[in-house]
Amino acid sequence: MNTRRDFLQKITYSVMALPFLPSTWQFDLASSDNKPYDGPVLRVAIMGLGGYGTRVAEAMQSCKKAKLAGVISGTPAKIKDWQSKYQIPKKNCYNYENFDTLKDNPDIDAVYVITPNALHHDQVIRAAKAGKHVICEKPMGLNAKEGEEMVRACEEANVKLLVGYRMHFEPNTLEVVRMRQHGDFGKILFFQGQCGFRIGDPNQWRLDKTLAGGGALMDIGIYAINGARYMVGEEPIWVTAQETKTDAVKFKEGVDETILFQLGFPSGAVASCLSTYNMNHLDRFFLNGEKGFAEMQPSTGYGPIVGRTHKGKLTQPHITHQTLQMEEMASIILEGKEAIIPVDGKEGLKDLKIIDAIYQSCKTGDKLTLNL
């Protein structure tokens, strides 16, 4: 079955006010060397043991600051397999009906929600009420209303809510952000984000509006939405969008096949982006400024990320994205570290507001004002 995960294998909050990164970004990754680590460890229960949950679990085996400590699944056979493979105690294994009892388990600090989009809202809120920090895959929810409720629930429970924006920790991505902040590109004029692949199995959950909340935009287009924000370094103030559908049988009502959308920023910079489930070989970011440019292709795949600027090739080291993400998120949760590009729930909420506006613009044809 072709999924976003298969595709990626093959091929913000404004950061303008953040301090410049050093000329060569130094990663604080405990697993990047052989030094012994005796600091705090984030003990994580993964909810949703599918393809991406498996990828995260495997990547965590290389972490020093984060550890796979539990599982939550609706499939008993998967729980049994993971128990054996990762030596997970039975008391740390839950299903979707009983995971509220996590509140009585001191061996788990956080829950990583990796389930279909429509389940995120309720599962994140339940995990927060159980007193656990939450990491949620993107999109954080189905719409901004859900996102606001999720952020509020975690604030009320005094737990952190983070979103699985792995690209916010990716070395070449951060190098482009550093260059932009340093003025290497001059005034930013234009961003282009192309995200797409030809989706396979027509019966998969990603083509079911009740589970996915939409289509390509929710699944792959969010990379262009989020990427436009951290590459330009501003929050968009308007959006226009157009939808094209060539197969109304495969892409039923409410499930978008292809959407073109445009964003405008306070400085006058504009973004032109494409999100599709009907074209392969689309994983490209391009940033243009008065003094230079940055191009990345692939730009959001599992890596290595390949890119160049007007100064030459991007040469930052490739580190497994999920390993780096979990190490850095452990530092955020346990040590109060701040991410260069935020990954908190409010960051996820901003993307949901843009998604809502894109869908609305597709229906009305209107240019809509954004207030993030």
Score class of each variant (00 low, 15 high):
G307L: 03
P116R: 05
M16D: 07
W205R: 14
G289W: 02
S84P: 01
D33N: 13
A241K: 05
W82H: 08
G233N: 04
T3H: 03
G307I: 04
F197T: 15
Y112L: 14
G193C: 04
C93I: 05
R308P: 01
K313Y: 00
K346Q: 11
K346L: 06
G147A: 12
F20K: 13
G233M: 01
M1S: 15
C136V: 15
N92G: 14
F27P: 07
T54W: 04
K35M: 05
N143F: 06
Q325N: 06
A127H: 10
R206L: 13
E290V: 05
Q181C: 15
R229P: 00
C195K: 15
G221P: 05
K367I: 00
I332L: 12
I354K: 00
P266Y: 00
Q83N: 12
L207D: 03
E338S: 14
I125A: 01
S62T: 09
V255K: 11
E175H: 07
K350I: 07
N288I: 04
R166E: 08
K311W: 05
I220R: 03
A30K: 08
G183I: 07
K35D: 05
L49E: 09
T54D: 11
T300F: 13
G164R: 08
D28M: 06
M218C: 10
S272M: 07
F197R: 15
M140S: 10
Y86A: 14
L162N: 12
A130F: 09
F27W: 05
N226Q: 10
G50C: 05
N98C: 12
I88R: 08
Q87N: 15
V44W: 01
F251Q: 11
I135F: 13
A128T: 06
M279G: 01
Q242V: 11
S361R: 11
A271L: 05
D344R: 07
